[in-house]
Amino acid sequence: MTLQEQQGEAELIAAILAGDTQLYHDLIRPYERPVYLLALSYMKNETDAEDVAQEAFLKAFRHLSSFRADAKFSTWLISIALNEARGRLRRQTASRTESLDKDPDEEGAVSPALLRDWREIPSEAVERGEIRDLLRKAVETLPEIYREVFLLRDVEELNINETAEALNISVSAVKVRLHRARLMLQKYLAPQLKSVTKPKGRWFAWS
């Protein structure tokens, strides 16, 4: 985000707080996708994710006056969405207990899938439903702490500091988790992508 955009956003927020509430529609438009994706990564189904996203946008509106002008609206919004998703998940799975005895960042190294050659898969490949499903499933299979970092940083392209702020974790935790997430995806996806995109004799062509 450029400085101008950030200033524009601050002005929008000031105008909304001054009573021009219709501007809230414009304020949140750039964040529909990141908020929804984050919700989806927790809820695992589209209906609940949409519900969580709507709730987060409503809450952000109701609490807009408590937004500190020196913070970034995007990270503030994402942490509201995160709380909403976590809260709902907790209510849904109240009986399930999580293991608290180990620090996930202390686990051993993740090793990648070993291959000798890699044939570049062009972006057009995601037009194939089979490839999209494979990619989505891989991300959904990541443990939560890796998935949320990966989605914010690599899919939504927040920077390291914004990701740390949104998730309320340290910058070094973001780096460690991101590294693990990326290697886990490589390990899971490289062999599968290789086999589904294997050239089928001389008839094969990408275009």
């Binding site: 570049e120 898969i121 972006s123 990326r182």
Partner: peptide, 8 residues
């Protein structure tokens, strides 16, 4: 492969 997977 990692770089490629991140792009995809």
């Amino acid at each position: 492969s990692t770089r490629n997977i991140l792009v995809l």
